[in-house]
Every structure is written in structure tokens, then in C-alpha cells.
Design a protein around this nucleic acid. Sequence first.
DNA 1: CGAAAAATTCTTGCATACAAGAATTCACGC
DNA 2: GCGTGAATTCTTGTATGCAAGAATTTTTCG
Lengths: 244, 244
Amino acid sequence: MDSPADTTPLAAFLAQVPQPEPGRRKGALHGSTVAKLRNLIVTGALAPGAKLNERELCLQLGVSRTPVREAIKTLTQDGLLRALPNKSSIVAELDVGEIEALIDVVSTIEGLAGELAAARVSDEAVAEIGMLHYRMLLHHTRDELPGYFEANKAFHRRIVELAGNPVLLWVWELLALRVDRARYSSNLWPKRWKMAIQEHEQILAALTAGDAALASQRLSEHVRNGLSGLVAALKDKAAKPDGA
Amino acid sequence: MDSPADTTPLAAFLAQVPQPEPGRRKGALHGSTVAKLRNLIVTGALAPGAKLNERELCLQLGVSRTPVREAIKTLTQDGLLRALPNKSSIVAELDVGEIEALIDVVSTIEGLAGELAAARVSDEAVAEIGMLHYRMLLHHTRDELPGYFEANKAFHRRIVELAGNPVLLWVWELLALRVDRARYSSNLWPKRWKMAIQEHEQILAALTAGDAALASQRLSEHVRNGLSGLVAALKDKAAKPDGA
DNA sequence: CGAAAAATTCTTGCATACAAGAATTCACGC
DNA sequence: GCGTGAATTCTTGTATGCAAGAATTTTTCG
């Protein structure tokens, strides 16, 4: 227990208490808690099937149960968690079937985004998306996976935003959560970097030309290729349990 | 303070005061609270822009703030409410722009559903959907709007289910909430009943034939027609403020 | 009388207390 | 020794308490 040699027992005790963070503004806990927890799930730090103990999460995140519970509810709605009545929520399983289901939906949604975006492109928008493309290229040459990952997502997101349809963006964001989770769970990416970059170039060209049909088709195909590869990788991984 | 003739619109709608219900099972409050509140919003009992006072809702729904707050969070995520920091949440505005945005997304999603469903139809499925179609027809002949409404939704839902893609169904349900709200807000339906029924017949025929491309196109068109009409009706309504 | 500021009240955001159900442990009997 | 059941503990579901921020009213000064 309390060792007599402990020179500052009070200080030690206080250090353990997660400080209220004096400069904290009210109303920010829900959002930040959701973000933290979501990251844990999407990146796989919380494995699929893992039980979420609310009290434990409170300690880890330094907040009370209220924001934690709200975050759990939110993420359950997003499909990242599964709620069991009167029992701990668990991280949603990430079965291959769901990713296969994602393929059709996401490719269709992004296809629509490409179609709408191509019909509305401006020089400014092309420049922005082009910049994101080259940022991705840069991360590729430097072998920086996280940066590549982020730039890739920004590229797609910008196109969806460019479509100018808020409902489309909303749906895309919901789907992107699941896609990200699937991506993190496989180490496919290094193999698909080059191909993905080429496809992005083609997409960018179609957008620049304002060719809606082509942009739609290429985006749809691009998404389909990416997710299909992912499914294949996961099936492969499942076949040989321990990655050698 | 509380005048005896309290004129809150909620009070009228929720005359049935849900008492603590002794035989209540634990864990049912969140779901039921969400459902009740969602109904109030979708049907328009809570008008767009209306402020939600948590304490008042607690009294009306007969529960404490916890489930009410959780329900508010849930419905905010569904896009039915808008959260303002440190202020009352409000019912999301139902602007025509959003419904126009819905047109592209929902028609695309249902088009995909039709395509997938047509590729998987069984005799049983055709029979089920046909039954729903005729149920709708029945409600039409009887001039029963609510029943018609419900059968219409069931018809569409069954097709999406038949597509066999859980992600697609999930997205469709989220979108359907907004579509329903838009429908309730206009009294277009009596005018479109006949047309909608004819279109359903065409859809059913395409599904029966297993023609994926045709089913997709017809469903997509059908949704587009319905929502476009809705937008027109709302614009009309906005032009002449008071419906004569 | 009008407007700005101070005080009061109201409402939300977060924390915590309490109760019901589930899980675990322990005891007892066979 | 082991299975079954009672008792304890643990965990979630719900209610409530308290503080920070917003709204409203009152007060004060021009």
C-alpha cells in the first residue's frame, strides 16, 4: 500500500486523477469521446468481437460514463458496435460478407459522386483534387503509409463534396467508416498503391474533361477494384491463420 | 408559470401519458423513446425548427432525461434533429434543397436494389412482392391513405431486402426516414396514387422477368418521379403560404 | 423613456447514485 | 470429486444532482 518512503503521497494521488483540464469548454466531451473510441475501433486497436466495459473505458478516456455511453450509442448506430441487451456492447464483427456488400453500395455511391462532380467541376476544384492526388503521390514515393492513406481518403472525399449533394456526402461518410475499418484490417495497400494512383490519374482526367459518364464509371471501377482486392486479401489471411 | 390551458402542441398529441408501467422490462426505454420521438418528427407533429426542451419531453414521455437525451443524440445522427452547442436541439429544417438532394441518392440506391433483386428473384419473392402490390391496390380503392402509405413502403422495403445486401438495406432505411418526413409534409399523394401503382406494376413485371437492367431503371425512375413531384408540391405550397 | 448591465432563472452537459439483470463464486449435498 | 443452487459481485439501464453557459428579467444610469 502506502510505502513510508513515498515523499509526496498527496501529489502521487492527484497525479492519478484525470484532471478536469481547466481550459476545457463545455460540450466537447461527446464529440471527442466518439472520435477517440471510433479510432480505436477503426484502426483495430479494439478487435472485432471485443467486449466494451464502460467503467474501464471511463478510466482509459478520463471521462464519466455519460459521454462514454453516448459514444457507444452513436457508434452502434454507425454499425461499428453491436448492442446486446443488458450486456456489454461488442465491436462489430468484420466479416468478409459485409465487405462484399460494401463493394456494390460504395462503388455505386462513388459512381454517382463522380457523375455529379464531373457536371460541376471548376478549374479551382480540378486544381484542388489534383493537389490531393500529388500529395498522395508524394507519400507514395516516401513510403509513408499513414500519409498516403489520409491523402487517398481526402481525394475521394473532395470529389464527393464537389458533387454538391449533402445527402450523398452524409451517406458516403457513414460508408467510409466501414471501408476504413476494412482497410486497416488488411495489409493489402502496399501492393495496390501503384494501381490506385494510376486509377486516380484516370479519374482526375475524366473530371478535368467534365465527362460525367466516364468519371462515374472510373470511380465506380476504382472502388470496386480496391474493395475486391481487400476481400481477396482477407480471404487469403483467413486461409492461413498466422501471417508468416 | 404553468397555466392550466397549457397550449404546447405536444401535450395534445401525447394525451396518453405513459406511466412507469410496473411490468416494464429493463433496457426498453431507449428504443421506445427513440421510436416515439422519431414518429413525432417524421409525421410533422414536431414542426421543423421547433426547439426540443428536454425537461418538457421527459414529462411528456414519462421518462427521465437520460433516455430522452440518448434519443436526441440518435435522431441527430439520423439527420432528423440538429444539435446546437449548449442550446436546445431543434427539429431539422426540411428544405426543398435537401429533398432534391435525396432524389439522386435514393433513386440510385433503389436502382441498385432493383438490379440486385432482379438477379436473385425466386417465385416466392415475386409472390410476396406481388401481394404487397395488391395490398396497396386495395388500400387505394378504399381511399385509405395510411394503409396505402404503409403498403407502399413495405413494397419498396421488400425489394431492398430481396437484394440481399445488408449494407444496402441499412443505407436505405436511413434514407427512408428522410423520405417519409418529406412525404408527410406534403399532401401530394392522392394525385400520384394511380401513377405510382402503374409504375409498381411495371417494376413487378421487370422483377418477375428477372431483367436486372430494366428493374433498376424502372425503380430509379419511379423514385425520381415520386420525389420530383414532391418537390414540385412543396414549392407550390411555399408559393401560396396557406393551403386553400 | 431607452439602453446597457447585473442578477435571476432556465437549460443543457457531465457526473454520480441507485436498481435490475447477468456473471461469477462459493457452499452444500450427492 | 462434481454438479446444482444460492449468494455475492459485476455491469448495464435509468434517474438525479450539480455546474457552466444561455436566456430572461430587473435594475440602474443616461
